[in-house]
């Protein structure tokens, strides 16, 4: 690793986009206020951007690649997402940004009814090298319409891959892998992780999509987590280790198609499974994992599969309620007590 200091999740996204655009001039960005300041005279004269995205993730890319490749669009998700689908199927590699995944309703048709089906309906002759960057996640006190987690909903669409990176290292490698991929990949960034720092190589690299990662090896209990819930899982595992229970923590990384082999292999070893997801539980990723494990690893299960998720409500605005809404190490330990209890030594 050539870089000395760790960099943030947000800087990493910027770096990945920069390297993808430098590597392949078919790659371009579209979205609302990706650069900003298009009509501000002194900025235009100096070829400068303004905000560089609502979170500043794309700051500095417009001056480097120009407004032809960093396109500020009108506030119309449907129009630019439709343009992106068209551009992708005709040979470019667009990376549109949907500011909050809660806005997916405005543009879902372009992905659901068009983008995801073209390769299939054109007999494999069309490809769809489209990477939709968006943000999800509660905990930022941003209220119900800016805090949801809908990666599971998008992952339910055949033909769409969905990636939820947890660490800066994975964020860079997965974003570059997504842009290289010839299918729609939704790259869902947790906005509350933007400030997280980690070691990230400076050079271009990819991390495979569809491969879960074992973050901690254990023999007694498998905990599968998505996104920032991986940190909750690690805290749970630390706590359990003090009581002599060795949990295996798996970062799912890719929500669709999720890595069945890694999860099943782990459950076959441990016999127990907790799934932690901050998305709602109904018809969702955690539920899908539970179903597949119950089906494929039935004879290995030594306890019921526990899904610890947010409740089936919108994200509350009040800070205290929002914290309650998110699974925590404590709530996981409490709710999963039923399958943890007989792992602990019997008290005399």
């Amino acid at each position: 690793m050539s870089r000395k200091s760790n960099i943030t999740f947000m800087q990493v996204i910027n770096e990945a986009l920069d390297q993808a655009m430098a590597k392949d001039d078919r790659v371009f960005l579209m979205g609302e206020d990706l650069a900003g300041g298009a009509t501000v005279k002194h900025l235009a004269e100096a070829n400068q951007d303004a905000w560089g995205g609502v979170f500043g993730v794309t700051k500095g890319l417009m001056p480097k690649y120009g407004r032809q490749r960093v396109i500020d669009t009108p506030i119309s998700e449907m129009s630019y997402m439709g343009a992106a689908v068209g551009a992708a199927v005709t040979g470019l590699r667009p990376v549109p940004e949907l500011m909050f995944n809660d806005f997916i309703g405005y543009c879902l048709d372009t992905i659901l009814a068009q983008g995801s089906k073209m390769r299939y309906m054109f007999g494999g002759k069309a490809s769809m090298p489209l990477t939709v960057r968006t943000t999800h996640g509660a905990g930022a006190n941003a209220a119900a319409q800016h805090s949801g987690s809908y990666y599971g909903l998008l992952g339910a669409i055949p033909g769409v891959k969905v990636v939820v990176p947890t660490t800066p290292y994975d964020a860079k490698g997965l974003l570059l892998a997504a842009i290289e991929d010839n299918n729609i990949v939704v790259f869902s960034e947790d906005k509350t992780l933007y400030g997280v720092k980690g070691p990230v190589p400076e050079e271009y690299y990819t991390v495979p999509i569809g491969k879960a990662q074992i973050k901690r090896a254990g023999t007694d209990l498998t905990i599968v987590a998505i996104g920032k819930m991986v940190f909750v899982a690690q805290a749970v595992a630390d706590q359990l280790a003090k009581e002599g229970v060795e949990a295996e923590v798996i970062d799912l990384v890719t929500v669709a198609p999720w890595d069945q082999a890694t999860v099943l292999q782990s459950v076959q070893k441990t016999g127990r499974l907790i799934i932690i997801d901050e998305a709602q539980p109904h018809n969702n990723t955690a539920t899908d994992i539970a179903a597949v494990v119950a089906d494929q690893a039935f004879d290995y299960l030594d306890g019921p599969v526990k899904r610890i998720t947010a409740p089936n409500t919108p994200v509350p605005f009040a800070t205290n309620l929002e914290q309650l809404y998110l699974p925590s190490a404590q709530s996981v330990l409490t709710e999963a007590q039923e399958i943890i209890t007989d792992l602990k030594p019997i008290k005399a």
Partner: peptide, 13 residues
Amino acid sequence: KGTGGNQRITKRD
């Protein structure tokens, strides 16, 4: 006699 949750018989038992 099960020692698991809900007095379920588990591998340990």
